[in-house]
Amino acid sequence: MEYNQQLKNVLSEILNIDTSNFMHSTKLLGELSELDSMSIVLLLIEIEKRFSLEIDIADLEAKHFETFGNLASFIKNPLTV
């Protein structure tokens, strides 16, 4: 399945929201009330499982969650151990 669609599925499942209209510019952090600290942790855990990643948390920044596009790039790019 395509990366972006997979990511939309993860976001939809964890946050319990409709992500079908999400675009690269869709704002996440600070805009979605569902995106609190608990859901961020659960998202990161699920992202690691679904995309077979191990994220280097020293590189984690708020900007990675600012928009859907940023998050998608974060997963695709080698910010991994």
Partner: peptide, 15 residues
């Protein structure tokens, strides 16, 4: 009060 405060804390753990 900053958006992503938890991510900042997680980042510190990573260091």
């Amino acid at each position: 009060s900053q958006a992503g405060a938890f991510l900042a804390l997680a980042g510190k753990m990573g260091s």
